[in-house]
Design a protein around this nucleic acid. Structure first.
Lengths: 136, 136
DNA sequence: TTATTACCCTATCGATTTAATAGAGTAAGC
DNA sequence: GCTTACTCTATTAAATCGATAGGGTAATAA
């Protein structure tokens, strides 16, 4: 299940991408337009800024804005920042790999075999989509 | 993230599919072989039996066994029983559809658009795999 | 320089879910 | 009729999630 953090993050990014210019947009405006708890959104935008996806400007006329062009922001990046691993099990994760405690042998593990396919197909979707593709 | 319930369920099913005959296998044997808490496994196997994937036999020489041939058990069925919805958001789920509270319009929702693609590609993987494909 | 605006950070909290455990009950077979 | 092994209910500890509260700080305009 997609977390609300990811859901809200995606909506906020799309909203920013849909802006005409790259002028800062206030948190309150995004929250209002997308029906998101403002405080919760604050923490999400903060994460996105720390990761380098967003820039921010303080003071009057401040807010958040995209640093790169939407077409240059692949969904793989966004999803990993917001949701974490794309794989459903750590033992098939590219960026967050962990060995299973129980499983003695990955090569012969049925779960591993299936989830590897799921990871690959999901990854392909995220690689084929940039933020620009999400803007209506 | 895949729940342990699903993970254990998949391993148990694969173990049963790998048996030579279709003779009942005791819970304790499956639990031991797959490194699973026996009590937890009990509840999982019970679910699988109630859904019609497994049969059970009580008393001495009893246990659980597959009702159908592994090649006739698609992963879509197994995953829906164990993990629930395949979609990451209810608004793109085929079997567990729910409208989003916040979202005013699905057609123009960026999250909807992206998750629809993910659902489709994941579904294709599960449709292309039967339990027989998981046996090493 | 000063007031305001709006981002920044920490802490907390209730609700829910997950994984596991305990213990008693019941049906089948020898 | 006794053992075996499945069946069911209840409980619990831990983790996570979503949300909220409240104050701090930096940048900007006047």
């Amino acid at each position: 299940m997609l977390s609300k953090k990811t859901k809200y993050g995606l909506k906020a990014l799309t909203f920013l991408a849909a802006q005409k210019g790259r002028a800062p947009v206030q948190i309150s405006e995004i929250a209002k337009h997308e029906n998101i708890s403002q405080k919760f959104l604050e923490s999400i935008l903060l994460t996105l800024r720390k990761t380098g996806l967003l820039g921010s400007k303080k003071g009057k006329g401040g807010g958040y804005y995209l640093i790169k062009e939407p077409k240059d922001i692949p969904m793989t990046t966004v999803m990993r920042v917001l949701e974490g691993p794309i794989a459903m099990v750590p033992c098939v994760s590219l960026n967050f790999y962990e060995k299973c405690e129980d499983c003695p042998d990955e090569a012969s593990c049925s779960v591993h075999k299936l989830m590897l396919q799921v990871r690959d197909s999901t990854l392909e979707v995220f690689r084929n989509n940039t933020l620009a593709d999400l803007v209506p």
